[in-house]
Structure formats: C-alpha cells, structure tokens
C-alpha cells in the first residue's frame, strides 16, 4: 500500500550528526542511533559534508575557526526537519553555542538560531520529541549511568535515558555516587591538565566500581573513552558502552576499548 499524504507529512526527516569521535572511534554508536531513529519512524540521512562541530576551537578561544566550522555545519544540516547527535556535548554546541557565536552577525544569526531550535541530543529527541517511552531491546544484568555534563546541565538530560534504560528487558539500573559529577574529560582539559583530570576520573572509576554493575553507560563518547581508559588501567573489568548501543540492542560488538 502506498504511503498516504499524512504519513509522508508525519515522517520526520532527520539529519544525523554523527560527531567526529563516533565517526572515528566507534561507528557502532552511529548505527545504533540510525536504528533507534528509524524504529521511531524517522527517515535518517547522514550528510557526507559533516566533520566536526567546532567545539574544541570554541572552547579554546579560537572564535574564527569555530565560526568557520559552524557555518559548514549549518549549511550542511539546515535543510533537515531535525538534527540529531548521539552526544549531549556536541548537540549543546549546535543548540547553545552557535546562536552565541553569531550573535553579532545578522545573516548567520538567524540561520544559527533556526538550526538551534531543531537540534537535539539523541535520547532526549526520542523521548521529548517522538514521545518514545520504551524500547525493544534486551540486556541481562545490572548497569550504571554516568550523567555527562553538557547533556545534563546544558540540555536537561537526566530522566530520559534512565526511563528508556529501565524499559530494556533484563536490565537493572544501579545509581552510582556522584553520577552528576564530571569525569574529568573536558575535551582538551584531559591533556592540558592531565594530573587534575586523573584525580577526577579516578573518583569516577571508584564510584563505578562501588556499584558492582558490570556495565557503565553514558551519552557521550569522550567521557566513555576517558572512564573506560581509567577502569582498564586500574584492572577493573567493567564493560563500557554508549547508551544508544544498549537501547538499540546492538551489543554484539565488544565494549569500548575491549578485545574481540
């Protein structure tokens, strides 16, 4: 049966901003995002012209490099109904920083604001825009969730991932102490001030371990690589995955940083 006109109107045309870290290190997260969006009835496209949102430049004070990357992202994504990223941090750059970046530029300001209003982090897009309340996935065992800073404090993502994780068959969520405290990644911070970063990720690693959950999930790959890196260095055997992998039921691949 051909699609009715109403179906076509309701189909949300999503441009997936896969993020440079996911693109390079963990394509599995990209596929999980595609599956979750398609299962929720979206049409997903991944424009090839995308690279990096410019956050490292913006946060390091390089305004002109940040603006130049932001213009590329705006041009690449402004035709979609929605822009969705499997990262609270990168989504917040598009949503919160771009309008500020172009506040003094009449032409680009309007385009930045327009992009901002339709940009979402993946999990909150599923729950808040598409009204997804549960997912069809299975993961037997306990898991603990780390709240990544930008997602939590810039975008208000707190209950959404927990709600969907609770709907995963067999999964029991255990809250760790200080789940809302930064893991010490902070982009370039972790190499600029690696000694301080080490204290912070050490605390996080200890709090993860104390839950005895064999699985840690979060919504940002940067944090996950940092925490996994520390857990592994300390010989703590905890599997680490992006929340999208678990929600999509795509967990056959080894966890982040784990051997095949």
């Amino acid at each position: 049966m051909p699609e009715t006109e109403k179906d076509q109107q309701d189909t949300k045309n999503v441009g997936l901003f896969v993020t440079c870290l996911v693109d390079f290190f963990r394509p599995s997260i990209g596929w999980a995002a595609v599956k979750l969006l398609q299962d929720a009835g979206c049409t997903v496209d991944v424009p090839a012209a995308q690279t990096c949102c410019g956050q490292p430049a913006w946060n390091s004070g390089d305004r002109s490099a940040a603006q130049s990357l932001a213009r590329k992202i705006i041009e690449t994504f402004e035709t979609y109904d929605y822009v969705v990223a499997p990262s609270g941090s990168c989504a917040a750059t598009l949503k919160k920083d771009y309008p500020e970046m172009f506040a003094d530029d009449a032409d680009w300001s309007a385009r930045a604001v327009a992009l901002s209003t339709k940009t979402y982090e993946l999990v909150s897009f599923l729950t808040d825009v598409l009204n997804v309340t549960r997912v069809k996935a299975e993961f037997p065992g306990d898991a603990t969730y780390h709240d990544s800073c930008s997602g939590l404090r810039s975008l208000g993502i707190k209950d959404q991932p927990r709600q969907l994780l609770e709907s995963v068959d067999g999964l029991r969520l255990l809250e760790m102490k200080d789940a809302e405290v930064c893991c010490g990644f902070g982009g370039t911070f972790c190499v600029k001030y690696s000694d301080i970063s080490n204290v912070m990720v050490g605390n996080k690693s200890r709090n993860v371990e104390t839950t005895h959950a064999p699985l840690l999930v979060a919504g940002d790959l940067g944090c996950l690589m940092n925490i996994k890196g520390k857990l592994a260095r300390e010989g703590k055997n905890v599997e680490v995955r992006h929340v999208a992998e678990v929600l999509a039921g795509l967990t056959e691949a080894p966890g982040i940083g784990d051997q095949k």
Partner: peptide
Amino acid sequence: YRDMPAPEATTFQSQ
C-alpha cells in the same frame, strides 16, 4: 594515566 580505546575498523562515514 589511562588506556586509550582503539577505534573500531573503518569510520562510520565510510561504512
């Protein structure tokens, strides 16, 4: 201070 996770085979864009 920590290990660096290795990338999975091939980038998402090429896949």
